[in-house]
Amino acid sequence: MRHLLSAADLDRAQAVTVLDVAEQMAATQRREIKKLPTLRGRTVVNLFFEDSTRTRISFEAAAKRLSADVINFSAKGSSVSKGESLKDTALTLEAMGADAVVVRHPASGAPHRLAHAGWTRGAVVNAGDGTHEHPTQALLDAFTMRRHLVENATGADLAGRRVAVVGDVLHSRVARSNVLLLNTLGAHVVLVAPPTLLPVGVEGWPCEVSYDLDATLAGAHGDLDAVMMLRVQAERMNASYFPSVREYSRRYGLDARRVGLLPDHTVVMHPGPMNRGLEISADAADSPRSTIVEQVTNGVAVRMAVLYLLLAGARDLAPAGPPADEVALTEGVLP
C-alpha cells in the first residue's frame, strides 16, 4: 500500500503494525530529545482545503518529530470549490518534490483522486475528506482504546471489545473510519443515532444500530468498553435532522446520569472539537474515564507511525517482518 485513504486499506496485521509502531513512537515522545532523524530530507506537505488547526498541527508535529521538512499549504479560499485548484495544486506540489501529501478536503473522495489521477507521485494520507473518512483519527481512537482496554497491548487487536459510536453518523467521516477499523480489529460496534442521522445503506455496515442511547449504555448490546461521542452541528437542526438542540441533547447527549449507566472500566471518547452541552456535558467530558485529551496526544504518535510506515521504507506499508540481523547483506539486491 502506498497511500492511506481509507481505514479499509488496512488489514488486521497492518492495522496492528501501525498501532505497535505508534506505541514505539509514543515512547520516543516521552524522552527529553523527542526528535528522530528518520525522515531527514523528505518533504511532507499538509494540504488543507478546509480549516482544521488541530489536525494540521498534529500532522505537522508528527512530521517534524521525524525530521521531515514540512510545508503547510492552506488552500482554503475563494477558489476551492472549483476542481482545477485540486489538480493544479497537486501538480505544484509534485514539482516541489513532495514525498507525502497530507490532505484535508471538504469533498468526499478528493484524496482518492489525488492518489489515483496521476497528478502526484507522493504518498497520499487522508486527513479527512468530506463525509467520507478520517483514517488516522480512527487509528488514534483504536490506539487509545487498546491502551486502556488491552493488557500486553503490543501485537494485540481489539477482539471482543464493544464500542458505541453515538451521534451524527450520517455526516461523520470519523464514524465511517471507526466502524471499518474497529471491525478489522475484531471489535463490535453499535451505532446510536436518531434515524435521520444514519445513512440509508447503513444496514450493510459491519455493526449494529440502535436508536436508544439509554438502552445501549445500559447493556442492550452487551457491556460497553468504550463510548465515542460524535460532534453534532447545531445547523443540522435547520435541515430538520432533529427538532431542536434541546431535544437532541435529551435523547442523544452524554451526561453524568448516562455515564452512571456504564460499567466502571468503560472509557468516554470524543474526536473533538466538542460542543459541550450538546452531545456531551461538561462533567462527562471532564470525568476521569474521559480519554479526550489523551486522544490528542496519541494523535501525534499514530501520525508519526503512519508517516514512518509510508515514507521510511523503499516500498509500502507492509512490514518486512522482524529486523534482519545484518542489513548490509541485502544491499544491492533491491533496486
Partner: peptide, 16 residues
C-alpha cells in the same frame, strides 16, 4: 445529491 442513495453512497460519504 451526488450519487444513488444506498449501500455504496453510505460507504463513500457522498450525498444520496
Amino acid at each position: 445529491a451526488q450519487m444513488h442513495e444506498g449501500a455504496v453512497s453510505a460507504v463513500l460519504g457522498l450525498r444520496g
